Amino acid sequence: QSSFEIPDDVPLPAGWEMAKTSSGQRYFLNHIDQTTTWQDPRKAMLSQMN
Results as ranks from 00 to 15, higher is better:
Gln39Asp: 07
Asp8Met: 09
Val10Met: 14
Leu46Met: 14
Ser47Thr: 11
Leu46Asp: 13
Lys43Ala: 04
Leu46Phe: 14
Pro11Met: 08
Met49Arg: 11
Met18Tyr: 06
Ser2Tyr: 06
Gln48Glu: 12
Phe28Arg: 00
Ser2Ile: 05
Asp8Tyr: 05
Ile32Met: 07
Asp40Ser: 01
Thr37Ile: 02
Val10His: 12
Gln34Ala: 09
Arg26His: 02
Ala19Arg: 13
Asn30Glu: 02
Asp33Ala: 11
Gln48Cys: 12
Ser47His: 15
Ser3Tyr: 02
Gln39Lys: 11
Ser22Tyr: 03
Thr37His: 08
Gln1Phe: 15
Gln48His: 09
Thr35Leu: 12
Ser23Glu: 15
Phe28Thr: 01
Pro13Leu: 02
Met45His: 06
Pro11Thr: 05
Leu29Ala: 05
Gln1Cys: 05
Gly24Tyr: 03
Trp38Thr: 07
His31Lys: 14
Thr35Arg: 06
Arg42Gly: 01
Ile32Glu: 15
Ser23Pro: 03
Ile32Leu: 13
Thr36Glu: 02
Gln1Ser: 05
Ser22Pro: 11
Leu29Lys: 10
Val10Glu: 14
Gln48Leu: 06
Gln25Lys: 10
Ser47Trp: 07
Ser23Val: 09
Ile6Met: 15
Asp40Thr: 02
Thr36Asn: 06
Leu12Phe: 09
Arg42Ile: 00
Met18Asp: 04
Gln1Tyr: 15
Gln48Tyr: 09
Met49Phe: 14
Leu46Ala: 10
Ser23Asp: 15
Gly24Arg: 03
Leu12Cys: 11
Gln39Gly: 06
Asp40Ile: 01
Ile6Ala: 06
Lys20Cys: 11
Gln1Ala: 10
Ala19Lys: 10
Glu17Val: 05
Asp33Ile: 07
Gln25Thr: 06
Pro7Met: 11
Tyr27Ser: 02
Asp9Tyr: 09
Leu29Val: 12
Ile32Ala: 04
Val10Thr: 15
Pro13Ser: 02
Pro41Tyr: 00
Trp16Leu: 02
Phe28Asn: 04
Ile6Phe: 11
Leu29Phe: 08
Pro7Ser: 15
Ser22Lys: 13
Asp9Gly: 10
Asp9Gln: 10
Thr35Gln: 06
Trp16Pro: 02
Ile32Val: 11
Glu5Ala: 11
Ser23Tyr: 08
Lys20Ala: 11
Asn30Pro: 00
Thr21Gln: 04
Gln34Arg: 14
Arg42Asn: 04
Pro11Gly: 06
Pro7Thr: 15
Met45Val: 13
Tyr27Lys: 03
Ser23Trp: 04
Thr37Met: 03
Lys20Phe: 14
Ala14Leu: 09
Thr36Tyr: 00
Pro11Leu: 05
Arg42Ser: 02
Ala19Thr: 09
His31Trp: 01
Ile32Trp: 03
Thr35Asp: 04
Gln34Leu: 07
Gln34Cys: 11
Pro7Gly: 05
Arg26Ser: 12
Phe28Cys: 02
Thr36Lys: 02
Asn30Phe: 00
Arg42Glu: 02
Ala14Gln: 15
Arg42Asp: 02
Glu5Met: 12
Leu12Trp: 03
Pro13Phe: 01
Ser3Gly: 04
Gln39Pro: 00
Phe4Asn: 08
Gln1Asp: 15
Met49Cys: 14
Asp8Ile: 06
Pro11Trp: 03
Val10Gly: 09
Met49His: 06
Gly24Met: 05
Gly24Asp: 08
Pro13Arg: 00
Thr37Tyr: 00
Ala14Lys: 15
Trp16Tyr: 13
Leu12Glu: 03
Pro41Thr: 00
Gln25Gly: 07
Val10Ile: 12
Arg42Leu: 00
Leu29Gln: 10
Gln34Ile: 01
Trp38Gln: 07
Ala44Cys: 12
Gly15Met: 07
Glu5Asp: 13
Gly15Ala: 06
Asp9Ser: 11
Ala44Met: 04
Ala19Leu: 06
Gly24Lys: 04
Met45Ala: 11
Tyr27Asp: 03
Asp33Trp: 09
Leu46Thr: 15
Arg26Gln: 12
Gly15Ile: 00
Pro41Leu: 00
Gly24Phe: 01
Asp8Ala: 09
Leu29Ser: 05
Gln1Val: 13
Ser47Arg: 11
Ile6Lys: 09
Gly24Asn: 13
Gln34Phe: 06
Arg42Phe: 01
Ile32Asp: 15
Ser22Asn: 15
Ser3Lys: 11
Ala44Asn: 14
Phe4Gln: 10
Ser22Leu: 10
Ser47Ile: 12
Tyr27Met: 02
Thr36Val: 08
Gln39Arg: 10
Ala14Gly: 12
Leu12Tyr: 08
Ala14Val: 13
Ser47Cys: 13
Leu12Gly: 02
Ala19Val: 10
Asn30Thr: 01
Pro41Lys: 01
His31Cys: 07
Leu46Asn: 10
Gly15Arg: 04
Ser47Ala: 14
Lys20Thr: 12
Ala44Gly: 14
Gln39Tyr: 05
Pro13Ile: 00
Pro13Asp: 04
Gln39Asn: 09
Val10Gln: 13
Ala19Tyr: 04
Asp8Phe: 05
Thr35Phe: 14
Tyr27Cys: 06
Ala19Ile: 04
Arg26Met: 13
Ala19Cys: 08
Thr36Leu: 03
Ser2Met: 13
Ser47Glu: 15
Ile32Thr: 09
Tyr27Trp: 01
Lys43Arg: 08
Asp9Thr: 09
Thr37Arg: 01
His31Ala: 08
Gly24Gln: 05
Thr35Asn: 08
Thr36Pro: 01
His31Leu: 09
Asp9Asn: 13
Leu29Pro: 02
